[in-house]
Each structure stands twice: as structure tokens, then as C-alpha cells.
Design a protein around this nucleic acid. Structure first.
Lengths: 215, 215
DNA sequence: TGCGCCATGATTGTATCCAATTAGGCCAAG
DNA sequence: CTTGGCCTAATTGGATACAATCATGGCGCA
């Protein structure tokens, strides 16, 4: 039985993480230890440990004797992370493709379909994340997986801003790419899938880099 | 002027990190908070924060209500990290090659020479690390750089064990690879350098994977 | 009026104390 | 002799209290 985090610092970290991912804590917001402590009916010690953990995940920026802020990425940092993703996620997918079960693939197909049909931004973001992360699921590389998840977490806020900006019609390229990706996955075409994914991330990166209004 | 870490937790973290990297704290050793606190004439609070930080770096394993241990990697984890490095470090090198100054290249050349001439294991490890990390220096991708440095840190103990095992004569392949790498760098041959580095890491990984006696 | 300095308040960093949890040994029963 | 449970000691997790540091605002002065 788990039930819930037994450690107070873990609960605080998870709650702050969710608050940051959903956007209810915006990038650049200050996080005051005492406020958080009061909110979770705890002392500042667990809060501090939670902040340390979130800093390591790249979600929070700590400045000694000064305070904690929700991490804010500039365009160069965003581009850098996309370039790292371009190298890592194709590897995860490539390792996974051959081991995906037919049920996995059916799941991915229905996710891809749901992505195409939702107009809602938050649904889109959630489903898109699910789609990609699940496609890596059978890679059997746990460290790589957690790195990739951290990337998605730190990028989440900027993905949202970008998604809002391009609007529903701006997603057409994503849909096409997902369809091609699904086909490669269904054919168990490892290198095709890797390459398509790389291009998918690359195209997004390049579009993001031109969008100066996000940062 | 900096002079030294102003935060106690930072000093503790740095000292523990060095102790782990030099091997004076072996993988699997338990780290008792109170012991460390006494050693650094501080309380347990900064020690706990230091441990959290080191856990995030992959150097320490924390188990709630139980304790902290110097992280121990099994063979699968080592192989996984090498495979990640195979994707990331060539990118760092590729980005850097074109921007290295003549002075950088001269430095690298003399490092490569020093690597060939030292019989000492710890010198070899230190110089080899310097050689590779410096070759990435002009990549202008700070996040990637710190990820790579973390990899080198977490692998350090296993690199040492491996280096001891193969002995001085076992290093011949490394020397050849370094020479080829240097040549590609001097020619500013980005893709050649990337590919050579990938093969360098890949060969090491495959040798490490066969060495069952390290784990 | 603008700049720089100092004081005061707010906030973070650390020490000490107490509670909760775990690990290991001892004893008893099978 | 082995095994299961309990009990105690050791260790970690958390709360409170205090010290150190930083930022903000007002004051004086050029």
C-alpha cells in the first residue's frame, strides 16, 4: 500500500510541481517558504527540501539568501533543450518500437486520434504528452525516461504558450507528423520512426525559435 | 571575490562530492547525517540539503526513514548511461569543434599527449576527463554541459575500476581513438569528430558490458 | 531634485529539540 | 535449531527558535 507520499517534503514537492505544470504558478513567480509551509500546514524544513528537489528538476531557481522562483527559460535555453530532446527522444522511441505490444499501439492510435479532435489547449497538451511518453514506454531505459519526463516538465509552460499562439489550425503539421509516426510504429520501422520524431521535434524547435513573443 | 561557498550546505555538498569522486567514499557506503554534521562542525540540516542535492546529481541514494548511501550502479544502469552519452557528447563536440580557438586545440593536443604518457590511473582519469570536457567547451550549450559533467561524475568510480582492470597496455585503443579525434578536430571536421567520439564511447560501453567483474 | 547611506523589516539559513520510523537483537514457541 | 514476534536503541523526519543576510524605504546632503 502506498496511499500517498509518506514524507511531507515529497507531498509538498509534488503539489508545487503540479502547480507549476498547470500554470497556476507562473514562470518568474516568487515562492516564499513560509507561505508554502502555511499552505501545507507544515514547517519550512520540508518546504526547503522540496524546493531543492524541484531545483534539481529544473522547475525552480534558488538564489542563496534571496529566495526561490519558478524557473524562467529564455529562448536560448528553450532551443537548447529542444536540441537535446532531438537526440534523446528518438533513441527512446527507437528502443521502444520493437517491444511495443499490440495493445500499446492501439492505445497510441487512439491517443493520436484524440489529439486531432480536441479543441482544448490543456487537453491537447496532456494528450500529446501522453502520446509521446507512452511511445517510449518499452524502451527499458529508466534513467533516460526520467530525463525525458523532466524535459517535458520544464518545457510545459512554454509548450502551452506556443500552443495557444498557433491556435487550433496551427496544429495541422503536428497531426500529419503524428500520423506518419503512427504508421512507422505500426510497421515496426525503427529508423523511420526515429527520424520522423527527430524532424517533429526539430520543426517545433525552429518554429518556437522564431516566435519571439513567447519570451 | 568568492573565496568559498557561503552556504554551509554547499560546502558540505562539495566536500562529499569530492570524497565520492576520489573514491574515498566507496559506492554502497552508508552516509550518516550526524557523522557528516560532526565532521563539518555544523548541524544536520545543511547535511540533509547537501544529500538532497547529491541525490539529484545521481551520486547518492536516499531511502526515506532509512538513510543515505553512495549511489551504486549495476551493469544495466552503466550501459544505459553510456548509451545516453553516445547521443549527447557527439552533439556537444560537434557544436564546439567549429568554435574552438587555436589555443584550445593546442591545449587539447597537449592533454592527449599527457594521457598517453602517464602510467598513473588517477592522472589518466583526470586528464581524460579534462580532454573530453574541454573539447566540448565552445559548444555554448550550458545545460548540456552540466548534464554531461553529471554523467562523468556518476560514472567516475566505474571508470576507475575499469581503468585499473585493463591496465596500462589496455589503453592502446583509447590512444588511437584520441589521435584520430584530435586530427578530426584540427581539420574542423565536425561530423568526423562526432562519429569518432560516438564510436569511442560505444567501444568503451561494449567492453564495460562484458566486464562482469566490475559490478 | 537626484543620489547615496543607513535603519528597519522581511526572508532565508542554521541550531536545537522532539517525534516517527526503522533495524537489529533477544526471547519464546514450534 | 529455526522462526516469528516484540522490544529497545539508533537514525532519520519535522517543529520551533534564533542568527545572518538582503531588500525596501526614508532621511540627509550635495
Amino acid at each position: 500500500m502506498d496511499g500517498g507520499e509518506s514524507l511531507s517534503s515529497g507531498r509538498v514537492a509534488e503539489a508545487l510541481r503540479q502547480a507549476i505544470l498547470t500554470g497556476s504558478l507562473a514562470p518568474g513567480s516568487r515562492i516564499r517558504q513560509e507561505e508554502v509551509a502555511a499552505r501545507f500546514a507544515t514547517s519550512r524544513i520540508p518546504v526547503r527540501e522540496a524546493l531543492r528537489q524541484l531545483e534539481a528538476e529544473g522547475l525552480v531557481t534558488l538564489v542563496p539568501h534571496s529566495g526561490a522562483w519558478v524557473a524562467r527559460l529564455d529562448r536560448a535555453e528553450c532551443v537548447e533543450m529542444y536540441r537535446i530532446r532531438e537526440r534523446l527522444e528518438p533513441m527512446a522511441l527507437g528502443e521502444s518500437v520493437g517491444a511495443l505490444t499490440p495493445e500499446d499501439i492501439a492505445e497510441l492510435a487512439s491517443l493520436a486520434e484524440a489529439i486531432e479532435s480536441t479543441p482544448d489547449v490543456d487537453d491537447f497538451l496532456r494528450l500529446d504528452r501522453e502520446f509521446h511518453l507512452r511511445s517510449y514506454r518499452r524502451a527499458n531505459m529508466p534513467r533516460l525516461m526520467s530525463m525525458i519526463e523532466r524535459f517535458w516538465n520544464t518545457m510545459q509552460q512554454y509548450r502551452r504558450a506556443y500552443t495557444v499562439l498557433i491556435g487550433t489550425e496551427g496544429r495541422w503539421a503536428v497531426h500529419h507528423e503524428h500520423r506518419l509516426l503512427m504508421e512507422a510504429i505500426q510497421r515496426r520501422d525503427r529508423y523511420g520512426a526515429e527520424e520522423l520524431l527527430r524532424l517533429h521535434i526539430r520543426r517545433t524547435r525552429r518554429e518556437l525559435a522564431t516566435r519571439t513573443d513567447i519570451f
